[in-house]
């Protein structure tokens, strides 16, 4: 892992240039350009708001559109960074066969690219906050750490996924499906407080309730989304109890994922 950090420092310029290339390429010949980055979360926010008006989801004193938007931006970041990261090695096959540099540059670049789009979406969020007359609290300073954690969560899947995808292209095809399922198991449409209330307060699943809640929060993104909403909208510190299971999972998964990637790396050029 120390070697990984060293590589990132040594190749930071390449990382930047490749991320810049990805962004430039994606929007170069598109008329509205980088504005496409906000299209997906805004559309989903509108749809969820519409659905919410039929089914009724309790969003407390926070207006539902901004609550769901604050959930959508880390979720979409995680989803797209992971999916692109998994496909990144195969889609750069031409470079892999010709030039050497540490191969983790590719998944890292995918994540970097998505970070830029995340930044743009923060602009929209800021606009919404102004519209609803909300002020960020001092707890917003937690954001960089929360984003870093999201990046690590994304890399835990992206690294091992990218390596496997070189051998079995099934991975990159299956992953988006799995990820869109995961969205329903994450507090995107509904807030985490609802889940907590049902399971911990009302013990809705009987003696299994506490275990189920732990399982639910094993999904690192559940904790991330909740933390986003807390520090930005509620003016509260992150709920570390809800983040802990996910953090433990990532702490185990990330090193494994990295080791698998590095072990497979030498054979990418032969197989891809």
């Amino acid at each position: 892992m120390i070697q990984a950090a060293k590589n990132i420092v040594a190749y930071r310029e390449l990382l930047m240039v490749l991320a810049w290339k990805n962004i430039t390429l994606r929007y170069k010949q598109a008329y509205i350009g980088i504005a496409w980055a906000v299209f997906k979360p805004v559309t989903l926010m509108l749809i969820f708001t519409l659905v919410k008006s039929f089914v009724g989801i309790d969003s407390g004193h926070i207006p539902y559109p901004i609550l769901t938007f604050a959930a959508l931006i880390p979720w979409i970041f995680f989803q797209e960074a992971t999916a692109e990261g998994v496909g990144s090695v195969v889609s750069n096959a031409n470079l892999i066969r010709k030039i050497y540099f540490p191969r983790e540059i590719f998944p890292l670049t995918s994540v970097m690219t998505k970070l830029v789009e995340l930044g743009i979406n923060f602009g929209i969020l800021a606009g919404l906050m102004v519209y609803y007359g909300m002020m960020p609290s001092i707890y917003a300073l937690w954001l960089p750490l929360i984003i870093l954690y999201t990046v690590l969560a994304s890399l835990s899947i992206a690294l091992i996924g990218a390596a496997m995808n070189v051998y079995y292209r099934d991975v990159a095809t299956a992953l988006p499906i799995l990820l869109s399922l995961l969205m329903y198991a994450s507090p995107v449409i509904y807030p985490l407080t609802l889940v907590k209330e049902k399971l911990l307060t009302n013990q809705a699943a009987g003696e299994w309730s506490n275990l189920l809640y732990t399982l639910y929060t094993l999904n690192p993104i559940a904790g991330v989304i909740d933390a986003f909403q807390r520090v930005l909208l509620y003016g509260q510190a992150p709920d570390f109890a809800a983040m802990l299971p996910g953090m433990v999972l990532i702490a185990i998964l990330l090193p494994i994922s990295y080791i698998v990637f590095k072990r497979a790396e030498s054979y990418f050029a032969d197989v891809v």
Binding site: E13, V17, L18, K21, T24, L95, F101
Partner: peptide, 25 residues
Amino acid sequence: PLIEVGAGLIGDLTGRENVFLNGAI
């Protein structure tokens, strides 16, 4: 490595952009 020069040149980028991209690669 000058293995197949032009590996990594991107058609949509300008010559200038490609110099910086390829140089970094």
